[in-house]
C-alpha cells in the first residue's frame, strides 16, 4: 500500500472521528436537542483536501459511526439506509468544487475561494437534505397516506438542515481561507 493511500485512509478515519465529536458537541452548544452541528465541516474539508474519494468515505464512516454509537434510529429499512449510509456520504460531493478552490488559492484570490467553498458546502449539504427528506417521506407516508408527507418531511428536516448548511458554509470559508494549508495535502511525503 503506498504512503499516500495509507495517509488518506488514516486522515479520513480521524476526521470522521472529529465529525462525530463535533456532532455530539452541538447538543450542548446550539438549540437544545437540535442537530444543528458542525458535522459537515470535516467532510467538506476532506472533500477539498483529497477529492471525491476522501469526502465520500469520510461521510460514510461518520454515518456508520452514528449507528455504532447508538445514535441511529432505524424505523424502516429504506429510511435507515438513506439516513445513515447515504445522507452523510453525499456531503462528499462538495469535492466537485475542489479544483476551483485550489486554483483560487494558488491565484491568491480570496473572494473566488470563498465563493467556491460556499458553493461546495451548500451543494454537499443540499444533497444531504434531499436524502433526509426522502427518508422522511418513507417514514411519514405510512402514518399519513396521501397527505402532505413531503411538506412534513421538508419542514422537519429543513428545520435543522438549512441552519446547518449555512453554518457549515460560513465556518468552512472562514477556516479554509485563514488556514489554507489545511486543504492542501503534501504529495511529496
Amino acid at each position: 500500500m503506498n504512503r499516500s493511500k495509507l495517509l488518506l485512509l488514516i486522515e479520513v478515519a480521524i476526521f470522521a472521528g472529529i465529525g462525530l465529536v463535533l456532532d455530539m458537541l452541538s447538543i450542548n452548544l446550539w438549540f437544545q436537542g437540535g442537530s444543528i452541528s458542525l458535522v459537515m465541516v470535516p467532510i467538506v474539508l476532506m472533500s477539498i483536501r483529497w477529492g471525491l474519494v476522501g469526502g465520500l468515505s469520510t461521510g460514510l464512516i461518520i454515518g456508520i459511526l452514528q449507528i455504532l454509537a447508538g445514535r441511529a434510529y432505524i424505523l424502516y429499512p429504506a429510511q435507515g439506509f438513506l439516513d445513515y449510509f447515504i445522507a452523510f456520504t453525499v456531503v462528499g460531493l462538495a469535492a466537485l468544487v475542489r479544483h476551483k478552490v485550489l486554483q483560487a488559492r494558488n491565484e491568491q484570490r480570496k473572494g473566488k475561494m470563498i465563493t467556491y467553498i460556499v458553493l461546495g458546502a451548500v451543494f454537499g449539504g443540499l444533497f444531504r437534505l434531499i436524502t433526509h427528506v426522502i427518508a422522511g417521506v418513507i417514514f411519514f407516508s405510512e402514518a399519513a397516506e396521501g397527505k402532505n408527507v413531503w411538506i412534513y418531511s421538508l419542514v422537519y428536516n429543513g428545520g435543522y438542515m438549512i441552519p446547518s448548511i449555512i453554518l457549515t458554509a460560513i465556518v468552512c470559508s472562514i477556516i479554509f481561507v485563514a488556514a489554507p494549508r489545511l486543504i492542501e495535502h503534501r504529495n511529496n511525503v
Binding site: R3, L7, I18, L38
Partner: peptide, 25 residues
Amino acid sequence: ERIKAVVPLLIPLFVSAFKRAEDLA
C-alpha cells in the same frame, strides 16, 4: 459571536489531527 469562537477551536483541532494522522501513517 459563537461562530467566531468556533474558529479558534477547529483550527488547532484540525492541525493536531493531521499531525496525529501523519505519525500513525
